[in-house]
Simulated scan of single mutants.
Amino acid sequence: MKRRQICILIVISLFFTVHATVAIGQTLAISASSAIVMDVKTGRVLYKKNINERKPMASTTKIMTGLLGLEKCSLDKNVKVPKNAVGVEGSSIYLNYDENLKMKDLIYGLMLRSGNDAAVAIATHVSGSVEKFAQLMNERAKKLGAKNTNFVNPHGLHHKDHYTTAYDLALITREALMNPNFKEVVKTKLWVADREGYKYFYNKNKTLKQFDGGDGVKTGYTKVAGRCLVTSATRNGVQLICVVLNDPNWFQDSYCLLDVAFDKYTPFSILKKDAVVKMIDVENGKKNCTGVVSKENIMLPLTEEEKGKIRTVLEIKEICKAPIKRGQRFGKVKIYLEGDLLYTTDIIAREDIEEKDFKDKVWDFVHRKKPI
């Protein structure tokens, strides 16, 4: 069946969905054992199938490995290849013992070519051993709320105690995509490493070429895990993640799920960065009041029906005391959909306001209003 026909069937099934989650009807079943579509901005789940079932994840493991490598080391850090990173089973960038590479070359080799040797080199450099790095991976996962995930290694070669869920993997990927360096790496089609020999790293992820807006993330396969794929795509300022685990039609299913989600949930601008959301009084300032603004643009994917049900709640002080600095935090704005919190961001000052000096206070005293 052609991709377009499949997508039409999915659209029909999505007609009968509730606002929180896209639900595919019993008449249509994608081939993935588990699958999810998540909005990167909010973490909102737009589609789910068995999202909390523990599954092996193969090389999608490397999303966490890459994120930690970027968080713990600078891209220009020199890394000497340890002996345990040479000749690792499976996909490889053919590292040599004692070879010196930049961390960025290892990261690109990890994410584009799925180098298991690169994974071990990164893990050993960051934590001193694969075992200690796995502990670090698990600590990071738990902080993100990935409670049904356990890492044993940095590459994803099969181990009975190495597993995740579609939901947890989406959470980890969402966090990774908020890292600008990671986001840049996974959307790169070709990287030329600064080394001799094997240095042209072509991205294995066909999403970048085949899918409109495709910009990540990672393929994975082992005999036990099956075909695992984490894709991301951005259209009209909205970025979505799709995770499919144990899916024979991994790319086809991912493309259809993303297409349907983008069709059903369209961008809706709620607040614009630097737009005044409220005027507040300023105590003891050279200005009596000032406007406070949203720290960022808030554009969320919503259905047409949902757009009329959005509610914004401001939690800010009514009066603030000078001096005030531009960018100073004054509170929060919370975005709700039918009682469910979708997103929160800071409300900040749009300008500097100096504290009144002695002359200002004399002026105020002289020109104060006298009682009639």
Score class of each variant (00 low, 15 high):
residue 135 Q to E: 15
residue 132 K to E: 14
residue 106 L to D: 01
residue 157 L to C: 01
residue 137 M to Y: 02
residue 149 T to L: 02
residue 142 K to N: 12
residue 126 V to A: 06
residue 153 N to P: 11
residue 141 A to K: 08
residue 117 D to E: 03
residue 120 V to Q: 11
residue 151 F to I: 00
residue 116 N to G: 13
residue 112 L to I: 06
residue 151 F to V: 00
residue 140 R to S: 03
residue 132 K to W: 09
residue 117 D to L: 03
residue 136 L to E: 03
residue 118 A to M: 14
residue 113 R to H: 09
residue 139 E to L: 08
residue 117 D to S: 01
residue 154 P to T: 03
residue 148 N to Q: 15
residue 154 P to L: 04
residue 156 G to V: 07
residue 129 S to R: 04
residue 108 Y to C: 04
residue 149 T to H: 05
residue 152 V to G: 12
residue 151 F to S: 01
residue 140 R to A: 04
residue 118 A to E: 09
residue 120 V to P: 05
residue 144 L to V: 07
residue 152 V to K: 14
residue 127 S to F: 05
residue 130 V to L: 11
residue 112 L to K: 01
residue 109 G to H: 03
residue 156 G to E: 04
residue 154 P to K: 01
residue 157 L to H: 00
residue 134 A to M: 07
residue 131 E to G: 10
residue 139 E to R: 13
residue 114 S to R: 09
residue 125 H to K: 04
residue 106 L to R: 04
residue 140 R to Q: 09
residue 124 T to L: 04
residue 134 A to F: 03
residue 152 V to I: 13
residue 137 M to N: 00
residue 128 G to K: 08
residue 116 N to S: 08
residue 114 S to C: 12
residue 142 K to I: 13
residue 119 A to Y: 01
residue 139 E to K: 15
residue 107 I to H: 05
residue 127 S to D: 10
residue 107 I to K: 04
residue 128 G to F: 04
residue 107 I to Y: 14
residue 122 I to L: 15
residue 136 L to C: 00
residue 135 Q to G: 12
residue 124 T to C: 05
residue 134 A to P: 08
residue 108 Y to A: 02
residue 117 D to M: 00
residue 153 N to C: 11
residue 128 G to S: 06
residue 140 R to N: 02
residue 138 N to P: 02
residue 145 G to H: 09
residue 137 M to T: 03
residue 138 N to W: 02
residue 132 K to Q: 14
residue 139 E to F: 04
residue 121 A to V: 08
residue 110 L to H: 12
residue 143 K to V: 10
residue 153 N to F: 10
residue 127 S to M: 05
residue 140 R to E: 12
residue 133 F to C: 11
residue 139 E to P: 09
residue 149 T to S: 07
residue 139 E to H: 08
residue 139 E to M: 13
residue 148 N to Y: 08
residue 143 K to E: 15
residue 146 A to I: 10
residue 115 G to P: 10
residue 140 R to G: 00
residue 138 N to K: 01
residue 122 I to N: 11
residue 121 A to M: 11
residue 128 G to T: 05
residue 143 K to C: 10
residue 115 G to Y: 08
residue 151 F to M: 01
residue 120 V to I: 14
residue 144 L to C: 11
residue 127 S to R: 12
residue 145 G to F: 08
residue 125 H to G: 00
residue 137 M to R: 01
residue 127 S to C: 12
residue 132 K to A: 13
residue 109 G to F: 02
residue 108 Y to L: 00
residue 109 G to N: 03
residue 113 R to I: 12
residue 125 H to D: 07
residue 152 V to Y: 11
residue 133 F to N: 07
residue 152 V to D: 11
residue 108 Y to F: 04
residue 129 S to Q: 09
residue 144 L to W: 12
residue 106 L to F: 09
residue 131 E to D: 15
residue 116 N to K: 15
residue 153 N to K: 07
residue 132 K to V: 08
residue 153 N to V: 06
residue 150 N to L: 10
residue 138 N to Y: 02
residue 114 S to I: 10
residue 135 Q to I: 11
residue 118 A to I: 15
residue 123 A to K: 14
